[in-house]
């Protein structure tokens, strides 16, 4: 490349050094306590999905189950199952969004917590007002943006993928987790 003006790259190069941002908001323990404050123990129960199970999840949820292994904990109180705590990742615009979902044994969302979010727009999905729109959802709900789940402008991909992720985990619960 001849006669390229190096001077013109200076403003570009200056951008390469940018400030780091704190984007990890909750640890696993903090998210567990936030969703199931009444639980007295969380027992790791990771799930290894077979190919057939992953295909079944994709068929019923309408989105791909990317991982064979899903991090799952039994939330218990006095030795009884009170729900499932699942940590999941979905595609954000630049990086994966890490979030946790609490599911009641009957297949209903108890709560959602965003643990790691690094996108430019859409910090609002961390706010309780948006996350609460997913609480109480079952597979009978539509899971449609701007219908039963509000969209956040500039973060539509994040909203859609977290919403679809929650639906996928409800299906995963039916496919791979025991009822008690």
């Amino acid at each position: 490349m001849r006669d390229f003006a190096p001077l013109l790259i200076i403003p570009a190069a200056a951008l390469v050094v940018g400030p780091a941002h704190a984007t990890e908001y909750l640890s696993i323990e903090q998210a567990q306590k936030a969703i199931f404050p009444e639980a007295d123990s969380f027992i790791a129960a990771p799930v290894l999905l077979s190919k057939e199970q992953r295909e079944a999840i994709e068929d019923r949820a309408g989105v791909k189950q990317r991982w064979e292994k899903q991090d799952v904990w039994r939330a218990e109180k006095n030795g009884e199952l009170i729900g499932w705590f699942i940590v999941d990742n979905v595609v954000g615009k630049h990086e994966f969004i890490t979030y946790a979902v609490g599911l009641l044994p009957e297949g209903k969302v108890k709560g959602v917590e965003v643990m790691v979010f690094k996108e430019t727009y859409g910090d609002e999905i961390r706010e309780a007002s948006w996350r609460k729109t997913l609480e109480g959802k079952t597979l009978a709900d539509p899971f449609k943006l701007d219908k039963d789940v509000p969209n956040i402008s500039g973060a539509t991909l994040s909203c859609r993928n977290v919403m679809n992720g929650v639906k996928r985990l409800l299906v995963l619960q039916q496919v791979a987790l025991p009822t008690r």
Binding site: M1, R2, D3, F4, A5, L8, I9, P11, A12, Y121, S153, G154
Partner: peptide
């Protein structure tokens, strides 16, 4: 989104024609 603002810088280098030495940005 509403109220969002963005700055861009574009540099497009154009190189080589049929004859001679030619470059433009």
């Amino acid at each position: 989104p509403k109220g969002g603002a963005e700055a861009y810088l574009w540099i497009t280098h154009h190189g080589d024609k049929r004859r001679g030495s030619y470059a433009a940005q």
